[in-house]
Design a protein around this nucleic acid. Structure first.
Lengths: 235, 235
DNA sequence: ATTGCAGTATTGTTCAACAATCCAACGATG
DNA sequence: CATCGTTGGATTGTTGAACAATACTGCAAT
């Protein structure tokens, strides 16, 4: 042994050794189900059925529900149960406002930022194009989410990162409300490429302009589909 | 009765009639305790004692714990219990990064925003000065938080608003780690006034510059105090 | 068509029990 | 003296059952 214990200090922080609880595991599972669309927006999650299916007590299940409700993926109606969130047109507008507030400033300030953060943006684009080549539309959607996550990460705050992940998860719900996996992501891939190229070249101005258009176009596309949908549904 | 039911439609939305649950009430109470500093950072919250004191079952209490852990006000250590979060110097830096990312762009884009949002900013400043006149330092701190909350609200997203509230609540914890109520808020009041004046005049450029300085100064003040503190504590 | 009133199903909450784990104290060992 | 097992006690993790409170359904009455 050496005289000092410096090696110990270089080990990963204890927070990285999860030691996860049952409630968190269930929450993780449900979260992926919701994000993947296996649990459709609006469906009710019966405490009894779920607790029996996944062999956890109702109490533990309810702890998981609380976590996911705080993330807006589930909504809790008193004495009625928890439901998979069903975003409305107003939610879509709010989500895009939030994304503009997060992504645009992050891109604009990307000059004095570590290069590996920009690299992560490019990696997400690559991943998206690879998925597109294999016609794996689901993976393509994931890559697109990661792309925007990487943009927000340019701000350099883990809290912002977490919040952005949440916003994107909710955005994913929006896509599930109106089943349209391929056509919606398809035209945006080259846009992502252009944004990354501008970023890598240090041209944050162009990157921000492209992103602004991107978001406006995407929002318009979604909101029109939503208002159409809500008009026909809630006549 | 009239022929239509339009009056009904104008009533407040059902979400505003909370019908709150026990767990949420307990969470609300604990949240204010933490924010007000009645529960000091680092203290452990015993399930048994708290459940007996507030006449709720351990399970209900645990639901409340989950909510507050998600807000970073409490931290959950497996098999050890929940503790009031004790922010570190890294947390302080991250919090200020987040605030810069949220507040500065909101201020810069405040031109095409509703006037009442800017009005809310001014109201917070007034409140702060009124509190200062009465030497109510605690209320002054609250007003300062509301001021920054109002700044972030210029972005026009309820999700951003909620996130900002969370960030500010955590920031409040930082102040409790180092007990210094008055001296820390005191010099910032005139700064707030200048920022609001610039905003009201439509000079978002000046407002953003002032805010940038404000945040940098505040962060420097806190981080130096923190590193000093952590150096002496964890030698 | 609306209102009033069962009955039923589900959630809200509590309680008690046990398993799993951490922690502090003690002693053994080198 | 410092370090390392061991042991016992305290606290959390999780469960299952029970009961209360509430929402929903269907039907009868107006």
């Amino acid at each position: 042994m050496t005289a000092t214990d410096d090696h110990i200090d270089r080990l990963p922080a204890p927070a990285l050794v999860p030691a996860t609880s049952q409630a968190e595991r269930v929450a993780d599972m449900l979260r992926t189900f919701v994000i993947d669309g296996e649990l459709a927006p609006g469906v009710r999650l019966s405490e009894e059925k779920l607790s029996r299916k996944y062999r956890v007590s109702r109490n533990t299940l309810r702890e998981a529900f609380r976590l996911l409700s705080r993330e807006r993926l589930l909504v809790h109606h008193m004495h009625r149960g928890v439901f998979v969130a069903r975003p409305t047109g107003d939610d879509v507008r709010d989500l895009f406002n939030a994304r503009r507030a997060l992504e645009l400033p992050a891109v604009r300030g990307a000059t004095e930022v570590a290069k590996d953060l920009v690299g992560a943006v490019g990696a997400a684009v690559d991943e998206g194009e690879a998925a597109r080549a294999e016609e794996d539309w689901w993976r393509m959607g994931s890559a697109n989410m990661r792309f925007h996550e990487a943009l927000a990460a340019l701000a350099g705050s883990v809290r912002i990162n977490e919040f952005m992940r949440q916003v994107l998860a909710e955005t994913r719900l929006v896509f599930h409300v109106m089943a349209a996996p391929k056509e919606f992501h398809d035209p945006y891939l080259p846009w992502n490429r252009r944004i990354h190229l501008a970023l890598a070249a240090g041209d944050t101005q162009t990157a921000a302009e492209e992103l602004t258009e991107y978001l406006a176009t995407s929002e318009r596309q979604l909101t029109t589909a939503f208002t159409e949908m809500e008009r026909s549904a809630g006549d």
